[in-house]
């Protein structure tokens, strides 16, 4: 049985923890709003980019000069997985969910006899994945210094990916991130970015002008050549934004339940504390009374 002093100390420490988790929850809520706004603000660009790509892809595809970024290299032996996670923990299952999805994907690819290379964005994913796939991780990108994810960061990653692609390091590139559905639900998602998937274009293209009426300056193929790398940067940017919103959402949820748990714990401890205090008082009274009776 812990002494009264021990109990008091424990209550005090749980209370301190509760204050911290409460504060973290509120910070996460504020950051979430900002992250959501950023994700919202970035949407027009990626939407229009999709439209333009759809248009132009319709005009170019099929020819022998279709850029490799869209047509693929012709085989799918080597896969590159870009795994985007957070830099910090304490956000519930956020990081482990993304890592689990990536791990399952990697295992099934290896089982099929494919080569897998992993590019980690964010520290947490690296920490989890390196236990099993240390030899397959070719690079990692650190975003710890970055306060707000900017397009520059995404562009840097995209450049890295495209550089590897141009050197023939991989055939297929898949992006792993967590899609932000709502504050309480974030869905880890895998998205293939190289080769750019054609069905996307078609669904987005409906209701648009027929591609053939367009004039292209300089010409369709070179615009497409310029556009595809940029599109990859945009996709990565979107993934990073979704990720940061999801991270904050997950953290908010995790900290909310942590605060609640701390509250319950405090209640329980206080109850034990009071009982014990009462028991002690009773004991002392009995001692005094029986002492007086003995006289």
């Amino acid at each position: 049985m812990p002494s009264l002093k021990d109990l008091r100390n424990r209550i005090a420490s749980v209370k301190a923890t509760q204050k911290i988790t409460k504060a973290m929850q509120m910070v996460a809520a504020a950051k979430l709003r900002r992250a959501q706004d950023a994700a919202e603000a970035a949407r027009p660009y990626s939407q229009r980019m999709g439209k333009v790509l759809a248009n132009i892809a319709g005009a170019v595809t099929g020819g022998a000069d279709t850029p490799k970024l869209m047509a693929g290299t012709g085989n799918d032996q080597t896969h590159l997985l870009v795994v985007c996670t957070a830099e910090r923990g304490l956000c519930g299952g956020f990081n482990s969910q993304i890592a689990r999805l990536a791990r399952e994907h990697t295992r099934s690819l290896i089982a099929d006899g494919k080569d897998v290379k992993i590019l980690c964005v964010g520290k947490k994913g690296y920490d989890i994945l390196r236990r099993e796939f240390a030899s397959r991780i070719i690079d990692r990108v650190d975003l710890r210094e970055v306060k707000r994810v900017g397009f520059v960061n995404a562009d840097e990653i995209a450049r890295k990916v495209i550089g590897l692609f141009d050197e023939g390091e991989f055939d297929v590139c898949t992006l792993f991130y967590s899609e932000f559905k709502s504050v309480i639900s974030q869905i880890p998602t895998a998205m293939k970015i190289i080769p750019a998937s054609a069905p996307d274009f078609e669904t987005e293209a409906d209701g648009e002008l027929d591609a053939s009426v367009y004039d292209y300056e300089p010409d369709a193929a070179s615009i497409l050549g310029d556009l595809l790398p940029r599109n990859i940067a945009v996709q990565i940017f979107r993934a990073l934004l979704e990720n940061s919103a999801s991270e904050q959402g997950a953290r908010m949820g995790a900290m909310d339940s942590a605060t609640r748990n701390a509250g319950e714990m405090i209640d329980k401890l206080t109850l034990t504390y009071n009982r014990q205090r009462q028991a002690q008082i009773t004991k002392e009274l009995i001692e005094i009374i029986s002492g007086a009776e003995a006289l």
Binding site: A41, A42, P44, Y45, G150, A154, E217, P218
Partner: peptide
């Protein structure tokens, strides 16, 4: 006329004339 950067939609307004620095 709409001017969009990856971060946000910068401008969306009615324009009469826009001069663009095209590559050509």
């Amino acid at each position: 006329f709409e001017l969009v950067s990856p971060e946000r939609l910068l401008v969306s307004e009615a324009a009469v004339e826009v001069v663009l620095p095209g590559t050509d």
